[in-house]
Amino acid sequence: MTAALEIDDLWVEAGDPDDPLVLVRGVSLTVAAASVVGLVGESGSGKTVTCMASLGLAGRGVRITGGSVRAQGIELVGADERTLMRVRGGVVGTVFQDPLSSLNPLQRIGDQIAEAVMLHHGGRRRSHHARVVELLAKVGVPAPEQRARAYPHELSGGLRQRVAIAMALANDPALLVADEPTTALDVTVQAQVLDVIRSATRDEARSALIVTHDLGLVAEVADRVAVMYAGQIVEEGPVASVFQDPQHPYTRGLLASRPVLAAGRRRLGAMVGRPPLPGSWPAGCAFAPRCPVATGACGEAPPIRTSDQGWSRCWHPGSGETTATSRAEEGAA
């Protein structure tokens, strides 16, 4: 069965071609049919660039220098704009963090959704009215018939994000790509939007790639997770095994530093330092300077070790405890 998305050894860079700023270094990632993959990382890790560049949306000055990206078998790297237009919104639906910036403030939301349908199916705006109402109902917008006539500013943040998801689903894409879809929302609304994403994927056998910094979100909706650090995926596997038995020390650190809901004040397991930005990635294992189990070997690029159903990029996978750090060490962050 064709995978919904196959990223193979993707390299992305920006800036002066003679002295480029490397943003993504050989990312390979597969989103299988009807599966949900979470791509996790901190700022500068390259998670958003990976997903945007894959869809030809990376913006001026950012270019793919190697690798291939196939959506439902269609090659996107080097594809002409017509192919990309057909894929985006057709094969792949996209949802971004801030629904206000992805909606046109001057157009009724029903018309915007109808336009998304028109772009791929032709016809006139009015002929898609039934489909628009159906989509709004599907993402849980109450009174969809009336709401279709609303402008974005008349809706709450949660409703706007539902509208953005409805628009992404307009042409029944095989793959949903969502970049931080709940970050800008209140917690209660986050949970509601997650429910919408869950039903749009699970109940309709749709695949999704969800880019986020929030490990909780990944635990909620994803089947597999890929953890990015300094432009590379450092660990990939089924969510359950990665969360219960993380192989890479960075994954372990991320999980330890995330507070969980429980009684009692407590010290959190803080990592030393901060994520390095593109252009200042250490040679060898990029995580080594922050790693509690780093050794001399980590000066060399680590090998890929496959485990049960996943893999990690580490010289010392699955070993060691994160140690407490002093305030000064943490301040170097």
């Binding site: 909780g216 635990a219 969510v239 009684a263 004040r265």
Partner: peptide, 29 residues
């Protein structure tokens, strides 16, 4: 804090707590 988090009494608090991602894969939904 311990009381509010472990035995929330108000339905709104209960709803807020239910909205926190469980963080345990498999407990979703």
């Amino acid at each position: 804090a311990g009381d509010v988090v472990t035995t929330p009494r108000h339905p709104y608090t209960q709803m807020l707590i239910a909205s926190v991602p469980a963080f345990v894969p498999g407990e979703r939904g």
